[in-house]
């Protein structure tokens, strides 16, 4: 009997937050960021450079991982499998006036209505996306420096260094937030959150998901 209740509860209370494509893209992206950040430390800090040496090899790993960096997100966004990814990207793009006010108040005032992602999460996604483009562009100048004037190389080094520092801050912050919110993190591992979690953290999204059941078919047809 207990089993039955459990199954029943699961059926009604689990809501898919990230599908397989999104989770794969996230973890592939995280792996690439991790390799880049580790090799970055080796390249940047003399103490670590000395221990590991083999600079040409470390540089190669860093450069090719960097070139691969946009790939998981692009594949997950552009493929026929990327419907949810694209829909979430639209969510990250659209901000209500309320959320903009949150941004100007530097996060001190909670927005009245929280959609699937809160403004901080949206900002994190945008920062990661922007970082990929800027780090790739500056990295290309540093790798193929022959084709750029010296002042550009210096500028690219400056931007690459400053943004790397910011990336370390944001990524560490992201990991701390994830550890502090295990249910949120589980949704990036297993995909789902409970209805209770959604009601607390993303009520607008919950209403959208639960009110959407019957409309889903029509959407499928119109696609």
């Amino acid at each position: 009997m207990n089993v039955r209740i459990d199954t029943y509860q699961q059926a009604v209370s689990r809501i898919l937050r990230f599908d397989r494509v999104q989770r794969t893209a996230h973890w592939a992206n995280a792996l690439l960021f991790g390799i880049l950040m580790l090799t970055a430390l080796l390249l940047y800090f003399p103490g670590l450079s000395g221990i590991v040496g083999r600079r040409a090899l470390v540089v190669n790993i860093h450069v090719w991982t960097g070139i691969a960096l946009p790939v998981p997100l692009l594949i997950s966004l552009l493929g026929p499998w990327g419907a949810r990814m694209r829909r979430d990207l639209r969510r990250v793009n659209k901000w209500t006036r309320d959320e903009i006010a949150w941004l100007w108040a530097l996060g001190r005032r909670a927005p009245r209505v929280v959609d699937k992602f809160n403004p901080g999460q949206k900002l994190n996604s945008l920062f990661v996306g922007g970082s990929i483009v800027v780090m790739l562009a500056t990295g290309i100048v540093l790798k193929w420096f022959q084709f750029f004037p010296v002042s550009w190389r210096m500028g690219a080094t400056f931007v690459h260094d400053v943004l790397a520092f910011a990336i370390f801050v944001v990524v560490i912050g992201h990991i701390i937030f994830a550890l502090a919110h295990p249910e949120s993190m589980r949704s990036m591992v297993k995909g789902w959150v409970t209805e209770g979690w959604a009601a607390r953290h993303a009520p607008a999204w919950l209403r959208e998901e639960t009110g959407e059941m019957e409309e889903d078919q029509s959407v499928a047809h119109s696609d």
Binding site: L126, G130, V134, A137, W152, G155, T157, V159
Partner: peptide, 15 residues
């Protein structure tokens, strides 16, 4: 962010 980063390549040395 992208525009700022690219501008930084060109003007970052001065900054």
């Amino acid at each position: 962010m992208t525009a700022l980063g690219l501008a930084g390549i060109v003007f970052g040395a001065r900054l």
